[in-house]
């Protein structure tokens, strides 16, 4: 085990050039409390704010969530929608890589635990006309894993046309899933509920959701995509259009 919590600089959130940079020792609690992320990376706050209980969030890190490489890791789903990147340090030096390249399979990370260290994570903060949102549905019995989690980052122009969009969700396959067909469909379309419902249909057409025992049926997960994905896209769009950003669901 390597404890990174005392390495100077890695326990901080900073703004460097165009990025918000999160050290690997930064806890979920730090992220949830960080005003710049609440405003400009809201879906990450919303996803980090539902992991475990407060005592766990006070110690557990987003880097740990990413390195754990679970298909529905909440923080990973949130960061993926933000188009996050991670910095990996090994004998060859430090390099940034896209977040999705870190995931090889359920619990399988591209970061070699014996030779490399995930040192920092970053994403470009949302700007005016841009926002994000996250939600998850938990099963109240048994396994402490989400039935489904999803996040979206969305940019609209003055005509309420979608100029950029990312949608992530899980579990929908072996790694956190980026819903490209739905993203392609939405680009250039008006940010309205009807389009968001079409995007949900596009997600359903492009992913094979599974029945997982003691967790959720495929049918239920599909229904969640049908209702919850348009809901968070609508929320992201409202935020992008300038409504006040109040992160939802924190600590529940």
């Amino acid at each position: 085990m390597v404890d990174t919590s005392r390495i100077s600089g890695l326990d901080r959130i900073s703004i460097e050039h165009d990025h918000i940079v999160i050290g690997c020792a930064v806890t979920h609690t730090q992220i949830v409390r960080e005003q710049s992320i609440r405003r400009s990376g809201t879906c990450l706050v919303e996803s980090c704010g539902v992991i475990g209980g407060p005592q766990v969030r006070n110690v557990a890190t987003l880097a740990g969530n990413v390195a754990h490489a679970m298909p529905a890791g909440d923080g990973s789903i949130g960061l993926l929608a933000l188009n996050g990147e991670i910095e990996v340090a090994d004998a060859a030096g430090c390099r940034w890589m896209p977040l999705q390249d870190a995931f090889l399979g359920p619990g399988k990370s591209a970061i070699d635990p014996r030779r490399a260290l995930l040192t920092r994570l970053r994403f470009r903060p949302t700007v005016a006309g841009e926002a994000s949102a996250f939600t998850r549905v938990m099963r109240p019995q048994g396994v402490a894993l989400p039935m489904i989690s999803m996040a979206a980052r969305l940019q609209v122009d003055g005509d309420n046309t979608i100029t950029a969009v990312r949608i992530s969700l899980g579990p929908a396959g072996p790694v956190p899933h980026l819903a490209r067909p739905a993203m392609d469909l939405l680009k250039g379309r008006p940010a309205v509920l009807q389009e968001f419902k079409k995007a949900a249909d596009a997600v359903l057409a492009s992913v094979a959701l599974r029945n997982s025992k003691h967790r959720a049926t495929r049918e239920y997960r599909e229904e969640m995509i049908r209702t919850q994905l348009p809901m968070i896209l609508t929320r992201a769009a409202e935020r992008a259009r300038g409504s006040q950003v109040v992160p939802q669901g924190l600590g529940l």
């Binding site: 099963r139 048994g142 967790r215 959720a216 049926t217 239920y220 229904e223």
Partner: peptide, 24 residues
């Protein structure tokens, strides 16, 4: 019991009147 929200919602959508099993 316990009430299964997965089964409950599917029954609501399908117009089924009774749920006798939970998922799993």
């Amino acid at each position: 019991l316990p009430v299964d929200q997965d089964g409950l919602l599917r029954a609501m959508r399908a117009g089924e009147k009774e749920v006798e099993l939970g998922w799993g």
